[in-house]
Design a binder for these strands. Structure first.
Lengths: 147, 147
DNA sequence: GATTAGTTGATACTGAGTATCATAAGGAGC
DNA sequence: GCTCCTTATGATACTCAGTATCAACTAATC
């Protein structure tokens, strides 16, 4: 797990300035354990620091994505979410009822990717596996209330 | 490959009306062999039929997605694209340079999904595997022009 | 042909994200 | 600590994708 200071240091090494707003955003982002939108960050920080600008939030999240601190996740709505990237390669399952997200590791897609590369003649550089379903809680509820 | 008439018939069976705009949109969609945005459809059809409305295009594409005629694909920009779906369960590889899309079948994810369900306690209902990379043509080009 | 419920298109709106630009402030060098 | 230069900021206005509304229209059933 990276610390706020380590991330700000990485920014500095990259030739970026360590500013108040960036520090506040990094601190906020590291506290999140669920995916969040830029708007979430903006709204939460507005409550703490009235003056922070929307553009700054977007810019800083872009920077954090470039630094590998967060990852952009596509949301079915078509908007971006961000997740703090943990070590290793991870994916998410989204609950279609309550929106809860679970992470899982070890997707072991390599053999599949190899056969696809073969089939399509593409060089596969990235993959995005997104699952949806019902979390444990909502499984119970849907027994009663059928959808 | 489905025909325009078969699709309009499916709409009718579903209790939807077969209207002029829907016919025009279905005809246009079936001609596409590359992914397209709703805006693409709107602009192309506006040239042919001045009066078609933006909302109608979005609504009809939604309907076609429900009927399984087209599939929604996420685009790195965060907007939706549509592709005409062929038979069976298929996924796509999108070229990050030219936007070309290749389909592939036989994703064989079942063992992986089972282990994920086990790990997360979710009941997995749907999965979405989307790959990005370089198509054969762009692989050649990037050798010369490094990115 | 009359009826009626689904569909349309114009319009205005929302929400995410970007462009612009004058002002503020980090930090390197002294 | 101070200066200066450059980057970063935030307010604002904008774009773009997609949605909501609603009166007018029309497909399809009788």
């Amino acid at each position: 797990m990276r610390t706020v200071e380590a991330i700000l240091e990485a920014m500095h090494e990259r030739g970026c300035r360590v500013t108040g707003p960036r520090r506040v955003i990094v601190e906020f982002v590291l506290e999140q354990c669920e995916p969040f939108s830029a708007e979430d960050v903006f709204r939460a920080l507005r409550r703490v620091q009235q003056t922070i600008g929307r553009a700054t939030v977007f810019r800083t999240l872009d920077l954090l994505a470039e630094l590998g601190v967060v990852e952009r996740v596509h949301h079915p709505s078509g908007t971006h979410r961000y997740v703090v990237s943990s070590d290793g390669h991870r994916h998410h399952v989204v609950c279609i009822r309550c929106g809860r997200v679970a992470e899982f590791s070890g997707c072991n897609l390599e053999p599949i990717l190899a056969s696809i590369a073969d089939q399509t003649r593409f060089r596969i550089l990235d993959h995005w596996l997104e699952l949806s379903g019902l979390c444990q809680t909502c499984q119970g509820e849907t027994m009663a209330v059928s959808r």
